[in-house]
Design a protein around this nucleic acid. Structure first.
Lengths: 153, 153
DNA sequence: AACACTATTCTTAGTAC
DNA sequence: CGTACTAAGAATAGTGT
C-alpha cells in the first residue's frame, strides 16, 4: 500500500505515527463519506482524538474555559474507561449476558485470533531462548575441554 | 476501484446498494482498526448520536480551584486508561513484546478460559433459541391442522 | 507541518457460485 | 446473506522539498 508493506502494530516513531495518522485519517474519512453517499447510510466516523494531543501545551489563561476543557477530558475518559472495562470483562468471558449469538461469534473469533498471536509469540520466544541456551552449552563445553587440557598437562 | 469506476452518488439499485454497503463497510472497519493499532488512537465507527456530557452544564462556582480538581481527575483516569489499553492490546494479542514466556503462558491460559466461557455461553444461547423455535413450529403445526379441519368441514 | 511524487500494496466493482 | 476471483483503480509508505 506504499513503497513497502508495514506490519499492523503500533508505530513507535512519534513523527511517522503522526504522519500516518494524518494520512490514513483522511483516507478513512473520504471512504466513510463515499459510503454514506453511495449507500444512503448514516455512517459516522469518530476519530476520537489522537492520544498525543497537545493538551499539555495548553496555557492556563482562561480558568473558566479550562474547567470546561478538563471536565470534558474527564468525562471522555470516564466513558472510555467504562467501555474498556466492559470490553475487558467480555474478553475474559465474564459478563456475556448482553451479547447475542452474532456478537458472541465475533468475540470467539477475536479470542481465537488473539490466542493464535500469543502462541506464535510464545513460540518465537522459546525458540530464541533455546538458541541462546544452545550457545551457552557450546561455550561451556569449550571452556570445559580447555580446562581439562590444562589439568592434564 | 474495481472492474470499472463508479460515480460517487446514491446507488439506485437496492441490491447493489446493499452489496456495496456490505463490502465497503468491511473495508472501512478494517482500515479503522488498522489506524487505531498503528497510531494508538481511538478510532470508532458510530451510528448513533454523540451524547452531550452533562457536566458541561454544571455551574462553575470556583473556576480556579475546579481546574486543578478536574486536571487531577483527568490525570488519574488517563493513567487508568493507559493501563487498560495496554492490557487490552495484550488481550488482543497485539503488543506482546514486553512479555516473557511465563507471562505469555498466563495470557494464553486466560484466553483459553475466556474462549471456553464464550463458547459455553454461545451454546446456551443457541440451545435457548432452538427451544423457542421448536415451540413456534409446534404451535404453527397445531394452528395449521386446526385450519385444515375447518376447511374440510 | 503540509504538500508532491510514485512504486507498491490494498480495495473493490463486476461476476459467478 | 456469504465467498472467491480478477482486473481496474485507489490508498499509501517512503522520500524529497
Amino acid at each position: 500500500m506504499g513503497r513497502g508493506k508495514i506490519p499492523i502494530r503500533r508505530i513507535e516513531n512519534p513523527t511517522s505515527r503522526q504522519v500516518t495518522f494524518s494520512k490514513r485519517s483522511n483516507g478513512l474519512l473520504k471512504k466513510a463519506k463515499e459510503l454514506a453517499i453511495l449507500c444512503d447510510a448514516e455512517v459516522g466516523l469518530v476519530t476520537e482524538r489522537y492520544n498525543k494531543v497537545k493538551e499539555e501545551c495548553r496555557q492556563l489563561v482562561n480558568p473558566t474555559a479550562d474547567v470546561k476543557f478538563w471536565q470534558g477530558e474527564a468525562a471522555r475518559m470516564r466513558q472510555q474507561l467504562q467501555y474498556l472495562q466492559q470490553s475487558h470483562r467480555q474478553l475474559f468471558g465474564e459478563e456475556l449476558s448482553g451479547l447475542n449469538v452474532k456478537d458472541l461469534q465475533k468475540l470467539e473469533n477475536q479470542l481465537e485470533t488473539s490466542l493464535k498471536n500469543v502462541r506464535i509469540n510464545k513460540g518465537n520466544h522459546i525458540v530464541q531462548e533455546n538458541k541462546e541456551l544452545q550457545k551457552k552449552v557450546t561455550l561451556l563445553h569449550q571452556e570445559k575441554s580447555d580446562l581439562q587440557k590444562k589439568v592434564l598437562t
